[in-house]
Design a protein around this nucleic acid. Structure first.
Length: 586
DNA sequence: GAGTTTGAAACT
DNA sequence: CAGTTTCAAACTC
C-alpha cells in the first residue's frame, strides 16, 4: 500500500531482480523471449510465482491433494494446454516456453525477488502476521503483474484477510474475481468491480461471495482478499483455484478440485471472492461479504468467509469466530476435514460448461450461461429466481444437474440447458462437416477460431471451455485495459475476443448485479485478469455479469480464448494462507 | 432491525 | 442414499 518505499527497505535480502519488471513492456522482451526463454521466464516468473507460490506456500493447498488428483485425471496437461493458448498472442512459442520455464525455475527463484523488482508491494513490507496475508497478496499482485489496478486494489486493505489462494486468484482477478471467494467480478463496462474473492471461488458462492460491483467495493474487498475468489470465485472464490480447475477440465463434475475453478472465482478465486467488510455489504456489492455466523464459529461452509477460503474480518458480525489467522491451525484442520468429506467443498461452485461455451460462441441469443453450477441447485420455492438459488446467485443458468422445481432461472433454465446440450451436439456435428468443407476451401485459421478449435484439439466433441461470460464481465474495464501482469496479460490478451463480451453490460433484475454475486470467490481470481477477464475464475468463479436471460449477452468470440483464460485461473486456487507464511513473500 | 423464508450443509 | 436437522443468507416487512 503506502509502503512501496517501505517494501524495498524491508526487504534487505532481496536480490534485485532488476530487469524483470520491464521485460514485457519493452518490445525487446518479445524478441528476447523468442531468442531465449530465460529472461522471459523471469517475467513469466512473476505470474507463476503467484501460482507456484499460492500452492506451495499455502498449507491448505499442500494438504489438498485433492485438487491435484482432479487435475491430473481430467486435465493432466492442463497447465500446458492452457498456457499454450496464451501464446496465441504474438509469441506463442515464447510464451509457452516462458510458462514452462517459470514453473520449472520458479521454485528455485526467491519469490520475493521476483516480485520486488516489479512492483514494490507495500504489503510485502509488512511483516505482521495479519499482514502476511496482505503481503502475500500484494506480492502476488505485484508479481502477477505490475497491474496497476491490482496495486490500487490492494490499496492496503487486502493484507488483512486474504488467503493464499486468494492471492492466486486475486492476482488475476485483481486482476479479477473472484470473489472470491475471491471471487471474480465481472465488471461490466460500467462496473469496474472485481471480486475480492473471490475468487471466487467459487463463489463458491463465496465466490459468490460475490463480486464487487463498485470500485469501492473493490477496495473493501481488498481488505479480505486480494483476490477472489473464492471464489471463489469465484468465483472466483476461492475456491477460485478449484473452480479454475473445474473450468479447465470442463468437467464440472469432478468435484474434487475445488471450486476454484474459476476462481473461480467463484471466486475465489477465493478465492474469490473476498469479502469485504460491511462496506461491501453496504454498497450492495456482494463481492466482499462478511459473514454473520452465530453458531458455526465460521468453521463450516455455512460461513461464506470460510467457504470462500478467507478469514473473517472485523467487519464480520460473526460470534465466536475461529476463522481467523490466530486460529489458523483450527481453520486448516477443519478445512481438511471438510475436504476429506468433499474434495470439492471449497471448489468453485460454478464451472464452465463446454456446451454453454459453444453456445455462446455461436448463438448469442441462447442462454448466456457459459458456466453451470457444479452440483446444481435444489430449489423448490424460489423458482431459481432469487439468490437462494446458487445457480442464480452465481449468475449461471440451471443445468440438468439441478433438481430444482419450477425453474425460471433467468440465466438459463434447467430444461433449456438440457435442450441445449442436445442441440450443441448436433451443432457440433454439423460444425464438423462445415469445418471440413471450410478447410477444404481455405486453410485459414479462422476456422479454428470457434468451433474447430475445440474439436480439433480436444477431440471430437470436446467441449470447449470458454470463459464464463460472467467472468468477462466481471473484469473491470480498467483491468481489461491494463495488462500489467506478464503472463496473464499475455494470455488474456489472446483472449481479447472474449473480453469483448465484457463490454456488454449485464442486466440484472435485482439491485444486486449478478456480477457482484458471482464474483465472490470465483471472481476474485478472475477479476484481475481484466482483459482476460478470466484469470480468476477461480473458483469461485461464478459468473459475475449475467447476461440477460434473453440473450443479450454476447457469446464469447472464441471458445479457445476462454479456455486459455481458464487455465490461467487455475493456479489461483483458494486456500487459507498462513498468516505466518511470508516465506515466499520474502 | 426483527422476523420469515429458503435451500445448502451437516447430520443421522 | 434418503430423510432430517441445523445453519446462515436472502428476503420481507
Amino acid at each position: 500500500m503506502d509502503s512501496t518505499p517501505k517494501t524495498k527497505p524491508t526487504k534487505p535480502p532481496p536480490p534485485p531482480p532488476p530487469p524483470l519488471s520491464k521485460f514485457e513492456d519493452s518490445p525487446v522482451f518479445n524478441f528476447i523471449n523468442s531468442l531465449s526463454p530465460i529472461k522471459p521466464v523471469k517475467s513469466v516468473h512473476t505470474v507463476q510465482t503467484f501460482n507456484s507460490i499460492s500452492f506451495p506456500s499455502l498449507p491448505v493447498f499442500t494438504s489438498l491433494p485433492q485438487f491435484s488428483p482432479l487435475k491430473s485425471p481430467k486435465r493432466p496437461n492442463f497447465s500446458n494446454a492452457s498456457r499454450s493458448p496464451p501464446a496465441v498472442s504474438k509469441n506463442k512459442g515464447a510464451v509457452i516456453l516462458m510458462d514452462q520455464l517459470l514453473e520449472i525455475f520458479v521454485p528455485g527463484i526467491p519469490p520475493g525477488d521476483d516480485l520486488t523488482p516489479r512492483v514494490q508491494p507495500p504489503e510485502m513490507v509488512n511483516s505482521g502476521a495479519g499482514e502476511a496475508y496482505g503481503v502475500k497478496n500484494g506480492d502476488v499482485l505485484n508479481s502477477t503483474t505490475e497491474n496497476k489496478p491490482l496495486s490500487s486494489l490492494q490499496g492496503g486493505n487486502m493484507p488483512r484477510r486474504c488467503l493464499d489462494f486468494e492471492m492466486a486468484g486475486m492476482l488475476l482477478p485483481a486482476a479479477a474475481a473472484a470473489p472470491g471467494d475471491g471471487s471474480i467480478r465481472g465488471s461490466s463496462s460500467s462496473s469496474s468491480s472485481f471480486r475480492c474473492t473471490l475468487p471466487r471461488i467459487g463463489l463458491h458462492l463465496n465466490d459468490l461471495a460475490s463480486s464487487l460491483k463498485h470500485s469501492d467495493s473493490e477496495n473493501l474487498c481488498s481488505e479480505r482478499r486480494p483476490g477472489f475468489s473464492s471464489s471463489s470465485a469465484a468465483i472466483f472464490t476461492s475456491n477460485s483455484i478449484q473452480d479454475q480447475f473445474l473450468f479447465a477440465s470442463s468437467t464440472p463434475e469432478s468435484e474434487n478440485p475445488q471450486e476454484p475453478a474459476s476462481l473461480i472465482g467463484e471466486d475465489f478465486n477465493q478465492i474469490n471472492p473476498i469479502k469485504n467488510g460491511k462496506s461491501m455489504e453496504v454498497t450492495g456489492n456482494g463481492a466482499c461479504k462478511r459473514c454473520n455466523c452465530k453458531k458455526s464459529r465460521c468453521l463450516k461452509l455455512y460461513c461464506e468467509c470460510f467457504a470462500a477460503g478467507v478469514y473473517c474480518i472485523e467487519a464480520c458480525s460473526c460470534l465466536d469466530c475461529f476463522n481467523k489467522p490466530i486460529h489458523e491451525s483450527v481453520v486448516l484442520d477443519t478445512r481438511r476435514q471438510i475436504e476429506s468429506r468433499n474434495p470439492l467443498a471449497f471448489a468453485p461452485k460454478v464451472i464452465l460448461n463446454s456446451d454453454s461455451v459453444s453456445e455462446l460462441g455461436e448463438d448469442s441469443n441462447k442462454t448466456p450461461a457459459s458456466a453451470r453450477h457444479k452440483r446444481g441447485c435444489n430449489c423448490k420455492k424460489s423458482n431459481c429466481l432469487k439468490k437462494y438459488c446458487e445457480c442464480y446467485q452465481g449468475g449461471v443458468g440451471c443445468s440438468i444437474n439441478c433438481r430444482c422445481e419450477g425453474c425460471k432461472n433467468g440465466f438459463g433454465r434447467k430444461d433449456e440447458s438440457a435442450l441445449i446440450g442436445t442441440e450443441t451436439q448436433q451443432e457440433e456435428e454439423g460444425r464438423e462437416h462445415c469445418q471440413k468443407n471450410a478447410e477444404a476451401q481455405s486453410d485459414e485459421g479462422q476456422q479454428n477460431s470457434i468451433n474447430t478449435a475445440p474439436s480439433t484439439q480436444l477431440g471430437p466433441r470436446r467441449s470447449l471451455i470458454s470463459l464464463p461470460f460472467h467472468l468477462k464481465r466481471r473484469l473491470p474495464s480498467s483491468y481489461l485495459d491494463d495488462e500489467s501482469s506478464s503472463r496473464l496479460s499475455v494470455r488474456f490478451k489472446l483472449d481479447e475476443q472474449g473480453i469483448i463480451q465484457t463490454e456488454a453490460p449485464p442486466k440484472f433484475e435485482k439491485t444486486t448485479t449478478p456480477c457482484e454475486d458471482v464474483m465472490p470467490e470465483t471472481v476474485s481470481n478472475e477479476c484481475p485478469s481484466g482483459t482476460g477477464g478470466v484469470k480468476n475464475v477461480s473458483p469461485n468463479s461464478k459468473r459475475v455479469g449475467l447476461p440477460p436471460p434473453q440473450g443479450d449477452f454476447r457469446p464469447l468470440p472464441s471458445t479457445r480464448i476462454s479456455r486459455k483464460l481458464i487455465l490461467q485461473s487455475i493456479p489461483s486456487f483458494p486456500s487459507f494462507t498462513n498468516p505466518n507464511s511470508n516465506e515466499w513473500t520474502q
